[in-house]
Amino acid sequence: MGFHTFDVEKADRLERPGVRYRWVSAEEVIGGLDPAADAAVADLGSGTGFYTDDVAPHVGSVYGVDVQTEMHDRYREKGVPENVELVASDVADLPFDDDELDGAFSTMTFHEFATPASIAELARVLRGGSRLAIFDWSADGDGDDGPPVDERYDASDAVEMLETAGFAIDSASTRTETFAVVARAP
């Protein structure tokens, strides 16, 4: 399953509000995180910063984490808010101290990094009790949008991986073509 990254040549497709908000709204992401005004959070698979930009006004700082530096280049061309720091990293090897982050979120990228090593790394860098909000394409979907169905997980897969790593699940839902899981770090 999964593990491909979004084609940088198609990065302009990541900046279409009418399409992106159809599947995950800014309010859902912010509500899932429920951040404090001074929180330090990470956008996992930040790409061109579409959702990073939505979260930035509500927190102290956002780390835009992406394994593709070319995505960061696209984000810089668009303009990066002052409280956003771009971090080139795989989720399985984050450059943060233990318990450094007050939250993290992933929008349509969980299928790209969903491994036990990545989930364990998130448990390490997230402060105990902080939220991890995941929104992704569901294996229950029809595959007309997003990655092929065989590269996706469903909500129960995400819940199982998170619980195995010690996360407590606040909510999990399957929606049209996507799923949403909000969990608390151990």
Rank of each mutant, 00 (worst) to 15 (best):
D7G: 11
A92P: 14
A117D: 15
A11E: 14
F50A: 14
G79I: 03
P57V: 09
D102N: 12
A185K: 00
S61C: 10
G166L: 04
N83A: 11
E15C: 10
V181T: 03
G128C: 02
F105H: 09
G79D: 08
E15S: 15
R22E: 15
E151Y: 01
L94Q: 10
A133H: 01
G128A: 14
G79F: 03
T178F: 01
R175L: 14
V80A: 06
D43N: 08
V91N: 08
R124V: 15
A185T: 09
S118T: 05
Y21S: 14
M71T: 07
F105W: 05
Y51T: 12
V8L: 14
P57W: 01
L14E: 13
V182G: 07
E85Q: 10
Y63A: 15
K78G: 13
E77C: 06
F50H: 07
V182I: 11
L122C: 09
V159P: 07
A56M: 06
V91T: 14
G146F: 02
T164I: 06
S61E: 13
G49R: 00
V29H: 04
D140T: 07
E77I: 05
G146M: 07
A39R: 00
T69N: 06
L94T: 15
P186H: 04
V159E: 12
D98W: 00
T174N: 08
A139E: 09
P57A: 09
D154N: 12
H72E: 12
T176K: 01
D145P: 00
D144P: 00
W137M: 13
A139T: 05
A92F: 04
T176C: 03
A155Y: 02
V87D: 11
L101I: 14
A42V: 15
R74F: 08
S46T: 13
A139I: 04
A42S: 13
G64S: 15
A88N: 12
R175D: 12
S61K: 04
L132G: 11
W137R: 09
K78M: 12
A88F: 02
P81L: 05
S118C: 08
W137G: 12
G64C: 12
H111N: 10
S171A: 11
A120E: 14
V182W: 01
G49Y: 00
D145F: 02
G2Y: 00
D38A: 14
L101M: 11
T5C: 11
Q68N: 13
E28D: 15
Y63K: 09
